[in-house]
Design a protein around this nucleic acid. Sequence first.
RNA 1: GUGGCUGUAGCUCAGUUGGUUAGAGUCCUGGAUUGUGAUUCCAGUUGUCGAGGGUUCGAGUCCCUUCAGCCACCCCA
Length: 428
Amino acid sequence: MSKNIQAVRGMNDILPEESPAWRHLESTVTRLLDSYGYREIRMPIVESTDLFKRSIGEVTDIVEKEMYTFEDRNGDMLTLRPEGTAGCVRAAIQNGLLHNQVQRLWYRGPMFRHERPQKGRYRQFHQIGVEVFGLEGPDVDAEHILMTARLWRMLGLEQDVTLQLNSLGSSASRTAYRGILVEYLWHHVDSLDEDSRRRLDTNPLRILDSKNPAMREIIDGAPKLNEHLDAESQAHFEQLRAYLDAAGIAYQINPCLVRGLDYYGKTVFEWVTDKLGAQGTVCAGGRFDGLVEQLGGKPTPAVGFAMGVERLVSLLEQEQLPLHHYQPHGYMVLVGEAAQREGLVLGERLRDALPQLRLEVHCGGGSFKSQFKRADKSGARLALILGEEEVSNGTLGIKFLREEREQQSLDRGLAIEFMAGYLAECNA
RNA sequence: GUGGCUGUAGCUCAGUUGGUUAGAGUCCUGGAUUGUGAUUCCAGUUGUCGAGGGUUCGAGUCCCUUCAGCCACCCCA
C-alpha cells in the first residue's frame, strides 16, 4: 500500500460514524459557554514561532522538540500552534480587547505537536480552550471549575472524572521554591533516576510528578511547594477552596500537580480519568497572570483552561450515551424516469415548506426492492413512494418503516400537509 | 525521542513443521409469484497477505529494512 497516499502519522480522519459524538460535544460546550456569557474567538492556526517561544518557555519539551516549525517563502519562521493560549493572548492584545476591560473568551480547533502517537494523543489534536482576562480574584478560578463540572454533568461523564487542584504560587515564590527544591534534590542526586537528573536543570518541579515508584521516597521527603507559597497566593488558594466547598465540588489537593507550560502561576487544576490509559488528563488549566505582560501587553491577570476533544469523545464513546444521529425523516423511493423527475421537484417543494425536514431522495435508479433496502439503511422513518402508478394518478405512497402502521396513499397536493403533521408528531 | 506487541478482503478474524488456484463471518450486489425494507434461503464480487529487499525449487508463513497502529516511558489536553 506504499503507493497509496496515507494520512500523515498521528493525524486522523474523523469519519461519519464518529462525527455525531464530536458534534454532540461541540454543541453541548457551545451551549454551556453561551450560558455563562463567554464569547467565541477564532485565531489563525499558524503563528510566528517567536510567540510560542516567549509564552510556553524556551526550555519546555513542546518548544524544544514538538513544534511543527517551518520557514515560509519570505523567510519568516512560523509554527503550527501547539496550544491555544498564546495565540489567544496575542489576538487579544493586538485587537485592543484588553484595554481596561474584562474578556471572557473561548476558542476551539486543531493543535499540532510532534509527539509519538498513542491512543488519546495525536500529532493533530483538538482543544476547546477558555480564557478570562482582567479578573484577578479566585472567583473566576472557581467559575471555571464550576463550569467544567457542569459540562461533565451535561455530558453524563461526571462519574468518569475527578478534580485535582494545586497552587503554584506567584512566580517569585515559585522561583524561590525551585531553588530550595533543587538544593534538596542535589543532596539525593545519587538516588535520582536518569529522567529526574535531566529535569534537575530543565524543569525540577516536574520531578515531583514522576511516575517512577523508586522516586516516591525522595519526592515524599522533598520540601512542599504549598509550604513555600507567598501570603497572597495562599489567601487566593484558600478563598478558591472556600468557594468550591460552598458549591459542593469535590476535589483532591495534589501538591505534585505541576503544569508543563512556564506561564502558569497560582491556581492550577486538572480533571483526570482512569479510563483512558496513560492519557488521563481530559481538561486542565490555571492562572497565568504574567503572560499578557510577557507578550507585550499591559499587566493583565488571566485564567484559563483547555479540554482535549479526542479524549472526551473517547470517553463519550465508552459510555455509549445515546447520540443524535441526524437520520432522515423520509427517504423518497423513485422508480421510473417520470417519477425521478417529479420526485426531485416534490423534494424541493417539501424542503421549501418544511426547513426542518431531513429528506433523502433516492438517486441512481434500481428496483423497488433495492431502493427500500436503501431507505431502511438510511434510518429514515418514512418511505415516500413514487412509481409509475403514483405518477399516473397524482398520488404519493407513504410507508412507515419504523412503526406498525398501514401503508397509505395520499393525493400529492396533500404531501406538505402530511409531512408537516408527521414532523410535529415526531417532535412531540 | 526510548522500549515492547501487532499488521491477511471495506470491517472482525482463520491460515497447522515454508508446499499447488489464500479461507470464514459480516458487508455489498442480484435472485427466491417481474411494485415494497432489518428476518430466512440461494448465487456472486471481494485481496499486489502493510511496503521493499533477501534466503529457498517454492514464502502469508523464515531473515533484514521500512511504514503504520497499539501499550508503557518521556511529555501533555
